[in-house]
């Protein structure tokens, strides 16, 4: 069913997901590129199966390990030419795990976001101390760690003590309709930094799939632990 819905969606036009553009170039033939390479004339390294994505997602352009899949640091200079929708789905799940299936579940009303308190309360072992993270510390952490500019491109659905962590994040960070890459570009522009404008902004036929964040991830919890440890000293 997931593959069938992905196929139907691609028949209607390209999908923008995180930093990816996914399109069906002709029936049964698919192309995945970094959005910056979407209309690029430069020579791209070609991958012909989904597993090529495994290598692409591991390192950024500086060769740093990308532990967080939502980090806006996907390298450019490659394209995947795939010959089945199941390969496309597999590749998407390597780039942005579960993004498409979570989006479908969200549209069916089947997603129940998990409040950060629940996430922290169930931690054991070395992460048990995160239960001492205060609401303000959690807000600050979300503002720093989750922001789309250099943190993570996911759209936050979870709450802190019942409220969206809006203190240091823009409203768009919680809006599944908002494109976090475009939001990131806007932030860059405000900063006065040079960056190519996303072609997706001027492409009305494309379909945007958000990378939804239903529950604070383990990297967030690990950061919370560092904060609690520092403050307990």
């Amino acid at each position: 069913m997931i593959e069938q819905l992905l196929q139907e969606r691609l028949r209607s036009g390209p999908i923008h997901l995180g930093e990816l553009v996914v399109r069906e170039v002709e029936p049964g033939r698919f192309l995945i590129r970094h959005w910056k390479d979407d209309e690029s004339q430069r020579k791209l390294a070609v991958g012909i199966d989904a597993t090529a994505a495994l290598e692409i997602v591991r390192y950024d352009e500086q060769g740093n390990y990308r532990a967080l899949k939502g980090a806006p640091s996907l390298s450019t200079g490659w394209e995947l030419r795939l010959e089945s929708v199941s390969e496309v789905r597999q590749a998407i799940d390597y780039f942005y795990p579960g993004a498409f299936s979570t989006w479908l579940a969200f549209n069916r009303g089947e997603i129940t976001p998990v409040d950060l308190r629940q996430t922290l309360t169930r931690q054991t072992g070395m992460y048990r101390v995160t239960q001492r993270l205060t609401g303000l510390q959690a807000e600050e952490l979300a503002g720093r760690f989750c922001q789309s500019h250099s943190g993570c491109l996911r759209t936050i659905l979870w709450t802190i003590d019942g409220k969206a962590p809006e203190k240091y994040l823009p409203r768009s960070k919680f809006d599944p309709q908002a494109d976090q890459v475009a939001e990131r570009h806007q932030k860059h522009s405000e900063d006065g930094r040079e960056e190519d404008p996303p072609a997706r902004l001027s492409s009305p036929k494309s379909y945007h799939v958000p990378f939804l964040c239903v529950e604070a991830c383990n990297l967030f919890v690990a950061e919370a632990r560092k904060i609690v440890k520092v403050h307990s000293k």
Binding site: M1, A67, D93, G98, S101, T102, V214, C217, A222
Partner: peptide, 14 residues
């Protein structure tokens, strides 16, 4: 410690 996490993987399963 990586994604997909244990919390999200079952959403990927049909």
């Amino acid at each position: 410690k990586e994604e997909p996490s244990l919390r999200e993987v079952l959403r990927m399963v049909e």
